[in-house]
Structure formats: structure tokens, C-alpha cells
Design a binder for these strands. Structure first.
Length: 225
DNA sequence: GCGACAG
DNA sequence: ATCTTGTCGC
């Protein structure tokens, strides 16, 4: 799949995003997929970025954890709309440290619900040619078709300014803030939501992502107590 | 020019 | 994302 391109400026990054977005495939079902990698990262200013890939089996649960660490100096800055250029390199390292390749990716961030149609989940999916889904804790782009009901399991579509469906706002549990689900690559809109709905979810985040989040925080603290 | 703005 | 204790609510 080649190296992960690191653009020298935002104009170049933007052009790359528009180009890669044309390669996104918005169809496919994840039925039958059991082994997924959940991706999350944590960091503190002046410290390395710690990325975690959790290999999770839908029936066996947590299998193992892969780490990816990138020094602050090597990091692309965080700019809304360009998150993948900052975090994806660390995720790719983390994925290399897994004993076996996942069948799909669950990523903390947007899929196609992005100004140029290439959130970090889509970017990673296209780069690795793997099915991927974006699960974000807040909305970056688009608007909700209607207010999201308070009931657990409710979902309303995320629409682009032109009215195109980009994903779903999804209430995973009662009394929690919604998650924003959008297909990353090689999965349809409905299928992406259906897949997330079937993941074990004890709290707000689906269990695989929650574990990845906990592991990332743990790893960051162990860097230098 | 005025807001909005994943992690 | 992280800095942070107790506290309100299901």
C-alpha cells in the first residue's frame, strides 16, 4: 500500500484529501466480520502521541493491544479537518504491532462526514484498503435531519449542506450524548450504523473503542510518571 | 467578514 | 486530546 504521504502544507493536504475521497467506496456489508481493530489516541502537549490499536473479536472480546508512538516534533499540528495527517501515522505503527491483521477498522473520528469527504476513518480505510467506520464523539461537518430522540438506540441522519446523507447521530445509551457514525470505506451508510449497533456497549462508547481509549490513556501515563 | 471547528 | 474533586443523577 506504500508509505503514508505527509503533505508539506494545507493546500497540498487538501488536494490529497479530495483525490483520495474519490476512491472511497460507500457500499458493503460487514456481516461475517468478527475480528476488528479499534483505534484511539491520547497525548499531552510536549509529549509523544500514543496511538493504540485494540484487536477485538466480536465473540472472544479483547485479543491484544498494539502501540504506536510518534514524537511531538514529528507531528502534523491538529487542525480541524486534517486530523488524519496527525494521527494516522501513529495508528499505522500500532496496527503493525498486532499479531494478525483485522478484517475491519473502527476509528475514533469521522468517516465521510467531513468537509472533503475524507475523515480519518476513510483515509485509513482507503490507505489500507480495509472496510472502516468512523465513530466520533462530536460533529465536524453537516447537520442533523431532525432532533435526536432521547431513547437508547435512536438515530437520525447527518446531512451535508446540500442534503446528502453522510451518516447518523446515534444514541448508544439513555442519558448520554450522541455518537456520530459515518462510513469510512467499503461499507454502506445503513450497514455502518447496523454494525455499530450490534457491538457490545456497556457505556457511551462501543466496548472495542472504550478499551482502546483506556489503553491509550494507560500507555500515555506510563511514558514518564 | 462572521461563525464553525473530529482529536 | 489534556489539565482535575467532588458532585448530581439514573
Amino acid at each position: 500500500m506504500g508509505p503514508f504521504p505527509e503533505p508539506k502544507d494545507l493546500q497540498t493536504a487538501m488536494a490529497l484529501q479530495r483525490s483520495l475521497a474519490e476512491r472511497v467506496v460507500l457500499e458493503g456489508s460487514l456481516e461475517g466480520v468478527r475480528r476488528i481493530a479499534a483505534l484511539d489516541a491520547s497525548h499531552r502537549r510536549g509529549k509523544p502521541l500514543v496511538a493504540v490499536a485494540v484487536l477485538y473479536h466480536l465473540e472472544k472480546g479483547l485479543l491484544c493491544v498494539g502501540l504506536g508512538v510518534v514524537p511531538e516534533e514529528a507531528l502534523f499540528p491538529y487542525i480541524p479537518g486534517f486530523l488524519s495527517f496527525r494521527e494516522a501515522p501513529a495508528y499505522l505503527e500500532a496496527l503493525k504491532n498486532l499479531p494478525e491483521p483485522p478484517e475491519a477498522l473502527l476509528v475514533d473520528g469521522q468517516g465521510i462526514a467531513h468537509p472533503r469527504g475524507l475523515g480519518i476513518a476513510s483515509h485509513l480505510g482507503v490507505h489500507l484498503d480495509l472496510p472502516s467506520i468512523g465513530v466520533a464523539k462530536s460533529l465536524l461537518y453537516g447537520r442533523l435531519e431532525a432532533p435526536l430522540p432521547l431513547e437508547a438506540g435512536s438515530a437520525v441522519r447527518i446531512l451535508s449542506p446540500e442534503g446528502r446523507p453522510l451518516g447518523y447521530a446515534y444514541r448508544s445509551r439513555k442519558g448520554v450524548k450522541p455518537l456520530f457514525i459515518s462510513p469510512g470505506h467499503r461499507v454502506g451508510l445503513e450497514e455502518a450504523l447496523a454494525f455499530v449497533k450490534h457491538l457490545p456497549t456497556r457505556f457511551r462508547l462501543p466496548e472495542p473503542l472504550r478499551l482502546a481509549h483506556l489503553e491509550a490513556g494507560k500507555a500515555l501515563r506510563q511514558l514518564d510518571p
